[in-house]
Design a protein around this nucleic acid. Structure first.
Length: 97
DNA sequence: AAGCTGACGACGT
DNA sequence: CACGTCGCCAGCT
């Protein structure tokens, strides 16, 4: 749990990371769903860069059109990690370079 | 205790 | 590239 937060917090601006990778970095491989559940329960005022987490297909794990989808996309656009069309610039989380 | 449900993932068709 | 399957794990009925 603690580790999950730490892993997410460690994703630098401009980078994207998958749920599975976060779980792995947190020392809990195979628990991608767990990561998703953790993030789903984050308070709206969280400092955690939850929006930098996408699924292994490099896509936002929210149904397009949904509020959440738009919120996440906006953040990513601000970080130049996506364009208006919704396409993400999938730079796998290999930080630090 | 048994089944259902996800902000998931790997693989096959 | 788009689905369908099956495996996965924790929390809630």
């Amino acid at each position: 749990m603690r580790q999950i937060y730490a892993a997410v917090h460690g994703v630098p601006e401009g980078r994207l990371c998958s749920y599975g990778k976060i779980a792995e970095l947190a020392g809990q491989p195979g628990r991608a769903r767990y990561v998703g559940r953790i993030l789903s329960q984050l308070p709206s005022n969280t400092q955690l860069p939850w929006f930098r987490i996408v699924n292994s297909q490099g896509k936002i794990s929210f149904p397009a059109q949904s509020e959440n989808y738009q919120r996440q996309l906006s953040h990513l656009i601000n970080e130049s990690s996506a364009d208006e069309s919704g396409k993400l610039f999938w730079r796998q989380c290999r930080w630090p370079d």
